[in-house]
């Protein structure tokens, strides 16, 4: 037999896993990692994994981690951040450290990291 707080505790614990699932809705932030040949060769997989781990640990809702073969060229790995209602922002040469900053400062904090933005 569970109490209401038990139910809430289950929700909070399970959220970490569930947060990765489900199709994006208009309220979600879409973070797309460029994982074409160029991206993968430059460590996009690492960036991807790091971001996913952060989202899981923090049980961060409304952030969807996606992938596509983006035309990255020399800027690989490229990451595009699309917040609801805002224009997408394109970052270049993203690594595991930078992606953590993007998550905390841009996505959660609302401040674009202008230094790393590319066209």
């Amino acid at each position: 037999m569970k109490t209401i707080s038990d139910i809430n505790a289950i929700r909070d614990a399970k959220k970490h896993e569930i947060v990765l699932r489900g199709e994006p809705t208009p309220d979600d932030v879409r973070v797309t990692i460029g994982m074409g040949d160029a991206g993968l060769a430059c460590g996009a997989q690492e960036v991807f994994c790091r971001l996913v781990d952060l989202v899981c640990e923090g049980a961060i809702e409304h952030v969807k981690v996606m992938r596509e073969a983006l035309d990255a060229g020399e800027n690989a790995p490229v990451v595009v951040v699309a917040c609801p209602g805002k224009d997408p922002v394109r970052y270049g040469k993203v690594d595991a450290v930078l992606i953590e900053r993007i998550l905390k400062e841009h996505i959660m904090g609302g401040n674009v990291l202008a230094d790393h933005v590319i066209d």
């Binding site: 209401i4 139910i7 289950i10 929700r11 399970k14 959220k15 896993e17 569930i18 699932r21 489900g22």
Partner: peptide, 20 residues
């Protein structure tokens, strides 16, 4: 999205919050 045979997954997505 969820495993229907696992009540915890339902709860994780705000399941039974409406009942509460």
């Amino acid at each position: 999205v969820i495993n229907p045979e696992n009540i915890d997954e339902y709860i994780a997505l705000d399941g039974y919050q409406a009942l509460i």
